[in-house]
Structure formats: C-alpha cells, structure tokens
Amino acid sequence: MAETPTDVANPDRRNFIVLSTMAMAGIGAASAGVALVRTMTPTRDVAGGGVIEVSLDGIAEGSGIVATVGRKKYSVRRRTAAEIEAAVAGDSEKLRHQETDAERVQRPEWLVLRLQCPHLGCPPQGTAAGEKRGDFGGFFCPCHNSQFDTSGRIRKGPSPSNLPVPKYFFASDEMIVIGKEA
C-alpha cells in the first residue's frame, strides 16, 4: 500500500473517495433493509379480492343478512317504510357525526353497512329481525353499548362516528356487489 505521489498531492480527493464509499455502502444497506421489510407486505395470493356478490332475493322487509368477505362482515338490511321515515327524520337532529340518510344509501329500501363499530371494532347487532337493535331501532354494539339509528348513524354511546358505508353497487334489482364501485 505504498503512498503514491497522487495521494499526497490531492488530499481532498482522498476524502471524496472515502465518503463516497461510505455513502455507497449505506445505500446498499438501506436498500437491503427496504427489501426485507417489503417481504412483510401482503403476499401475491392475498393481494386484491375482497369483493362479494349478495343476492337480495328472499330478504324480508325489516330484516337483513350478514355477508362475510374474508374476515370482514357487511350488513345488507331491507328497511321498512317506518324505518326509512325514522331515518329521514333523524337528518334534522343534532348528530355527533352529521350525515343525511340520502348520503348513506343508494336506494332507500336497502341499507348496506360495514359491520364494524368505529369505537373499537366489534360487530354491531341488529341486521336480522329479532336481534337487539337498541333505543333507535337500528344497530346495537354489545361491546360498549353504542346505539345506531336506522341509517346506521351513532346516536348514543362511545362510537365517535357512524357505521361506515362500504363501496357497493346494484348489479341488478336482485343483486348487489360489495367491495367495489360499478
């Protein structure tokens, strides 16, 4: 490792080489780190999906069904005229999370919700007739007593916001597709 005349003549060049070596090694180490963490992203066989077709056939007025996609639960509920009226009446109340019923449904008869309480994630009851629906006739979360109206809006209890409405569309009068837009 003899000292060459160039090394002595250009002390600044030396530092440049040393620094670029360290920078280059750093870039390599950082890329390796990114690549390692990338292996934790969803794998190719689970990425995508999450779409389900739900037949509306046979759902009685005042009742509904729960559709499951993977681990997610959705409520598809057919509202009675009285329930729709109650929901629309609720528009003028002072709500914690202000939304009108018209913003939350595509067709007044059908209420489609993601069954996940915004408080801490429990699935609220009330989809099928006969389940506990709380003081407002909509949905009731058994974990911490959040009560939702017939539009799925929070009216009483700890939930900070309304039950979320998923992406969905009516493929026909008898069929909706949950998980994507038309």
Partner: peptide
C-alpha cells in the same frame, strides 16, 4: 414454496 412464489421478494429472501 409460498415464500419463493407469493411473498414479495421472497425468492431472494
């Protein structure tokens, strides 16, 4: 094989 085929960058890993 799942690691080799389905995990992002899994074959390299």
């Amino acid at each position: 094989e799942h690691i080799m085929r389905d995990v992002q960058g899994g074959m390299f890993l």
